Computed example of a mutant assay.
Amino acid sequence: MRVETVDLDDWPGRGLSDEELDVAYNVRRKAGPELFERHMGRYRAESARAVDGLPGHPGIVYDEASGERLDVWGAGGPDLRPAFVFLHGGYWMALSRHESSFMARALHGQGVATVVPDYTLAPEATLEEIVRQVRAAVAWVHRHGRGHGLDPDRIVVGGSSAGGHLTGMTMVGGWQAPLGLPEDVVKAAMPFSGLFDLRPLTRVYVNQVVGLDLPRAAALSPALLPAPRRCPAVIAVAEHDGAGFLAQSRRFAPHWDAAGPLVVPDRDHFDVVLDLADPGSAVFRALLALIGPRH
Rank of each mutant, 00 (worst) to 15 (best):
R2T: 15
R2A: 12
R2P: 13
V6P: 03
D10K: 10
P12R: 04
G13N: 05
G13C: 04
G13K: 05
R14V: 15
L16Y: 08
S17H: 09
D18L: 11
L21M: 03
P33H: 09
E34R: 14
E37F: 09
E37A: 14
R38C: 10
R38D: 13
M40Y: 13
M40D: 13
R42V: 09
R42D: 12
Y43T: 09
E46R: 15
A48R: 13
D52H: 07
P58N: 09
G74R: 09
G77L: 01
P78D: 14
P78T: 10
D79H: 12
W92K: 00
A94N: 15
E99V: 14
F102W: 10
V116Y: 02
Y119C: 08
A122M: 13
P123A: 00
E128I: 08
I130P: 04
V131K: 03
V131E: 02
R132M: 11
R132W: 13
A137S: 10
A139T: 12
H142V: 03
D151M: 09
V156R: 05
V157L: 04
S160W: 15
S160M: 14
H165V: 02
M169E: 00
M171T: 11
V172S: 03
G173C: 08
G173V: 01
Q176T: 10
E183I: 01
V186G: 06
V186R: 00
F192W: 12
F192R: 11
G194Y: 10
D197A: 02
L198Q: 04
T202C: 08
Y205W: 15
Y205T: 13
V206D: 10
D213L: 08
L214M: 05
A223D: 08
P228K: 13
I235Y: 06
D241Y: 03
G242K: 04
F245T: 12
F245S: 12
F245K: 12
R250L: 08
R250K: 11
H255M: 14
G260H: 01
F270G: 14
L276C: 08
L276K: 07
A277E: 05
G280L: 11
F284P: 08
R285V: 00
R285P: 05
I291F: 05
